[in-house]
């Protein structure tokens, strides 16, 4: 406590002392994770995406380096999406019926730098496509688009443990990001991605301790922290967003303070969470005072993503191309 400063300020007689900016000096930094491998690195991607590497909090690059802009991925499915609202499907102009055309539109028409594919069709309740079918699909996908890829299982642990190793092998050397590993199910996926040169998504249920523990468990199996991206499990705007927001801020502050075990970049599945909530999908007729339905959904996704950027998001997986475009513009400001 500097009493003399107070005295100076209160008396108001002393000439104003110079106002100096307060800069934080952080000890730690976020790991840089590279997604995608070009030909000279054993892959076939046309570009690579680097995320992480922050040495201070989002947007504050006056006091520390923020070497990489947050990456914005568009999300596709391996099968036509069953539960997407019509506005969202319409935004892609009908190509969602054919996943390869859909992927192409994401990259060529909407300029996605990163493509996330969810193997929804492998789920036992959704047709249960076989691991071989999905691996073949991914090979075709990798040939059709040349941006780095994020691959997610169907969400059924038992199925994913047979599905993802085969998919990982099919994309060997492409340095994809594979998900998701959880506290109860991480060994199979970790072994597969370690062998095939990919990175992993470590999913924790809005819990900093579990996030940290899972990073330790995965890195103990031999996958370095540079190849882990954390999924803190977000909720959409109005549906628990603030819980993940604060978990992310706490984790990032710990990382910058030197805790390496939470210093992995964050991935947030913004689109998946947004496009099931009432405010994004309800008809205008049901809620006339909520305004235009399509704009409302886009805004819901973009505003969710914007808040997450402030909390430290490094990869935003989005669904509506307009929301993705808007958030990329904003992310470029950091």
């Amino acid at each position: 406590m500097k009493l003399m400063n107070n005295v100076t300020l209160i008396s108001g007689e002393t000439k104003m002392s110079r106002q100096e900016e307060m800069l934080e000096k952080w000890q730690g930094e976020v790991f840089t994770c590279v997604i995608g491998a070009k030909k000279d690195e054993g892959g076939t991607r046309g570009s690579v995406v680097k995320v992480g590497g922050e040495k201070t909090l989002p947007f504050l690059d006056k006091e520390g380096s923020l070497p990489n802009t947050a990456a914005v991925a568009l999300e596709i499915f391996d099968v036509p999406p069953a539960d997407w609202p019509e506005e969202l499907v319409a935004a892609y102009g009908g190509v969602t019926a054919n996943p390869l055309e859909w992927a192409d539109a994401c990259v060529r028409k909407f300029g996605a730098e990163l493509l996330c594919v969810k193997l929804a069709g492998a789920h036992p309740d959704a047709g249960g496509r076989s691991p071989e079918q999905e691996a073949a699909f991914l090979s075709k996908l990798a040939a059709a688009v040349n941006v780095p890829l994020i691959v997610r299982g169907c969400g059924d642990d038992v199925k994913d443990n047979t599905l993802l190793p085969l998919c990982s092998e099919a994309l060997k050397g492409e340095r994809c990001l594979f998900g998701s590993a959880s506290q109860d199910n991480y060994k199979t996926l970790t072994a597969a991605v370690t062998a095939d040169g990919h990175g992993i998504i470590a999913e924790s249920p809005i819990d900093l301790n579990i996030a940290k523990q899972l990073n330790i468990l995965i890195s103990d199996l031999g996958l370095p922290l540079e190849r882990i991206v954390m999924d803190p499990t977000i909720g959409a705007l109005g549906y628990g967003l603030e819980y993940a927001y604060s978990i992310m801020e706490r984790a990032r502050l710990a990382a910058l303070s030197g805790d390496r075990n939470v210093a992995c970049p964050f991935i947030c599945f913004t689109g998946q969470e947004t496009w099931k909530v009432k405010e994004a999908v309800a008809a205008r007729a049901d809620f006339p005072h909520w305004g235009d339905k399509e704009k409302r959904g886009i805004l819901w996704e973009a505003v969710t993503a914007s808040a997450l950027l402030q909390a430290g998001a490094d990869i935003l997986v989005m669904r509506h191309p307009k929301a993705a475009e808007e958030i990329k513009k904003y992310a470029c400001h950091r």
């Binding site: 886009i298 805004l299 973009a302 505003v303 914007s306 808040a307 402030q310 808007e326 513009k329 904003y330």
Partner: peptide, 13 residues
Amino acid sequence: PYSVAVEAAGDIC
């Protein structure tokens, strides 16, 4: 309007 909302969201946080 989209830019405004996205930027305002950052300012709220």
